[in-house]
Simulated assay, not measured.
Amino acid sequence: MRILVYLVRAFAGLLILVTALSIVESNEWWIRIWDFPRVQILVALLLAGGVTLWLDRRLGRWIGLCCAIAAGWQLYRIYPYTPLARTELAFAKAGSASPERCFSILSLNVLESNHDYRRTAQLIDRVRPDLLLLMETDKRWAAALAPQLARYPNRLERPLGNTYGMILATRLPMRDASIETIAEKNTPSMHAELTAGDPFRLIALHPRPPLPGQDTEARDAEIAIAARRAARTRLPVLAIGDFNDVAWSHTSQLFKRVGGYLDPRIGRGTFATFPARTPLLGWPLDHMFVTPEFAVRDLAVLEDVGSDHLPVHARLCLTGRPADSKRPEPVSPEDRRDVKEVLQEYREKQRRP
């Protein structure tokens, strides 16, 4: 029994420690990774606190209190992505916009090492999206999906063998399209002006995640630069992709405020997409942010097609601001300062030998 008490104490202490680390503003990978599993840490804190109160007569009360405080912080961070919160973006009703102003989206990180091309091809054939974004696509993926891609008159393709290849295909009229490297070599993003009744800007991102030896300066800089671009354009903006960052992180929330975006997931759920085989234990890495000129008709995470990510499907309409949607959060002086700091840290890292 004593050994069990010590193990529970250690487990609770570890959970409290990683919660404290997640509060630290740092680009170090071993700190930033604790942004991801907040739901899982919250559940573990509640369990650890309860078991400690039950088993540990000496320190259980104090450890239980610390677990409760840490759990409260985790809940505070993820609360907007629960059905308990107020929705931020109203869903449009069918028929509220003319058909030429509406279009469907399918976004999927295919997992480069996944060779089950058939299931993804079948998904595209079934959904038949007007706008298709595929990530982690190498030359083999491009060849395997060639029949599906051939149906789209407008495409941007950058197949790569480093897990950061991208393919964008659409039936919507496209102009001013480009494939850019915003922050990190061989990590492309895609940008285009599309038309669905009226023109809008599309930003597709897939920056690199925090990993051992790989901090988040480049990822955060790419997200920040994309947000500033969205803020400067006069057109509606749609941002999609695998950001390798969770929706509730400081960086994603900064992107949302600076770009003037709304998030259809707020007040509805996390819409977790990774890992695909355990979505109840996963987190939302694949995003869709829209400016207020868009109305979202529906948003769904689809079935497993062999990747480690689940596909995201949505139907959008350019209808102007829905009457019962919230306004985007204003950009504060602190937000502007944070963006400058993110870009300064990135430039400093680039200058290092």
Score class of each variant (00 low, 15 high):
residue 243 F to E: 03
residue 336 R to W: 09
residue 324 D to W: 13
residue 45 L to K: 10
residue 229 R to F: 09
residue 57 R to N: 08
residue 325 S to T: 07
residue 70 A to H: 05
residue 233 T to L: 07
residue 206 H to Q: 05
residue 103 F to V: 03
residue 348 E to Q: 13
residue 283 W to L: 12
residue 40 Q to T: 01
residue 215 D to R: 15
residue 87 T to Y: 05
residue 45 L to E: 06
residue 266 I to P: 06
residue 229 R to A: 14
residue 29 W to T: 00
residue 182 I to G: 06
residue 227 A to T: 08
residue 348 E to T: 05
residue 88 E to N: 01
residue 213 G to I: 06
residue 211 L to H: 14
residue 193 E to H: 14
residue 76 Y to M: 09
residue 97 A to L: 02
residue 286 D to E: 06
residue 97 A to V: 10
residue 279 P to Q: 12
residue 99 P to W: 04
residue 42 L to Y: 12
residue 231 A to I: 03
residue 345 E to R: 13
residue 154 N to A: 13
residue 240 I to H: 05
residue 105 I to P: 04
residue 214 Q to D: 14
residue 30 W to P: 00
residue 88 E to Y: 04
residue 343 L to M: 07
residue 57 R to A: 14
residue 312 V to Y: 01
residue 15 L to K: 05
residue 299 L to Y: 13
residue 132 L to Q: 01
residue 90 A to N: 11
residue 302 L to S: 13
residue 134 L to G: 03
residue 92 A to T: 11
residue 150 A to Q: 08
residue 344 Q to L: 12
residue 150 A to P: 02
residue 89 L to I: 11
residue 346 Y to L: 03
residue 202 L to H: 06
residue 317 C to K: 11
residue 127 V to I: 13
residue 150 A to M: 05
residue 306 G to D: 01
residue 160 L to K: 00
residue 58 R to S: 13
residue 203 I to T: 15
residue 20 A to C: 11
residue 343 L to F: 08
residue 328 P to N: 03
residue 42 L to N: 07
residue 56 D to C: 08
residue 154 N to E: 09
residue 90 A to D: 07
residue 151 R to A: 09
residue 303 E to I: 05
residue 250 H to A: 15
residue 125 D to N: 07
residue 208 R to G: 10
residue 90 A to T: 12
residue 72 G to Y: 14
residue 236 P to Q: 12
residue 77 R to A: 13
residue 225 I to D: 08
residue 125 D to E: 07
residue 4 L to N: 10
residue 206 H to I: 02
residue 301 V to T: 14
residue 103 F to D: 03
residue 304 D to C: 02
residue 302 L to E: 11
residue 13 G to R: 10
